[in-house]
């Protein structure tokens, strides 16, 4: 997906199933990774790899994600229009209704502004990457971590996901390849490469013991 447009929440074609790792375990690992970090990460996603026998290519799809939010939510300003904000709220209302069965428009979940990074995280749930394509796909194919810091660097990376991340307010994106997928982290703060985080990812997401 190459646009910043709306999220198709109920499109079954966007939600193809795939083999999954234990989701509770994944969530706990993602939470441990960024809640315990000294840096301020906005979200963490585990992109899970699967192999397509037909095309012979590896794919990365949504495994699980943890959205922590920004340190100072009030500081967050959207560059998008009021119409875009209404669209986000509408989608969130529909998703809330689908998940909980409640369609109350006064629900606190939908009353609040949907921030740019929340939207980026939500849209990520609909995305997948072929090995070698996109930031997670490039990291997975090369087995080399990718660490991009700075708005200009994200824009100039030539990667659509990085460009999207920058548009939605991110200043740092990191993709660390593992045997079963890729761990992606994003932040609205500029965070520079450090080996502590890499080591933590490798320990937490080494599913082969």
């Amino acid at each position: 997906p190459g646009t910043t447009g709306s999220l198709p929440p109920t499109s079954s074609s966007m939600f193809q199933s795939q083999p999954i790792l234990n989701q509770e375990t994944l969530q706990q690992r993602l939470l441990t990774l960024i809640d315990g970090a000294r840096e301020s990460w906005t979200y963490a996603i585990f992109w899970q790899s699967s192999f397509d026998n037909t095309s012979g290519a590896a794919h990365l799809g949504w495994g699980d994600g943890y959205y922590r939010g920004e340190e100072n939510r009030q500081r967050q300003q959207t560059t998008f229009s009021a119409a875009e904000q209404e669209n986000r709220k509408k989608v969130l209302r529909e998703l809330t209704s689908l998940i909980s069965g409640s369609s109350s428009s006064s629900d606190a979940v939908v009353d609040d502004e949907v921030t740019d990074t929340e939207w980026f995280f939500l849209v990520s749930m609909t995305q997948s990457f072929t090995s070698g394509v996109g930031l997670p796909g490039q990291a997975f194919m090369s087995s080399i971590p990718i660490w991009v810091t700075g708005s200009d660097t994200l824009t100039g990376s030539g990667c659509e996901r990085a460009r999207q991340g920058q548009v939605f307010g991110l200043q740092t994106m990191v993709c660390v390849p593992m045997a079963n997928g890729v761990v992606e982290l994003g932040s609205t703060e500029p965070i520079y490469q450090n080996s502590d985080l890499m080591n933590k990812v490798r320990i937490l997401f080494n599913f082969n013991g």
Binding site: T10, F15, D64, Y67, G69, I99, V109, E118
Partner: peptide, 26 residues
């Protein structure tokens, strides 16, 4: 919900719940 595999449903439900918590604590 129909059309959304369980693992995304779980992620989504968790995201919405946390969002509600953040809104109530703001």
């Amino acid at each position: 919900p129909r059309g959304i595999p369980q693992f995304r449903k779980v992620s989504l439900a968790r995201f919405l719940e946390k969002r509600k918590e953040r809104a109530m604590n703001a």
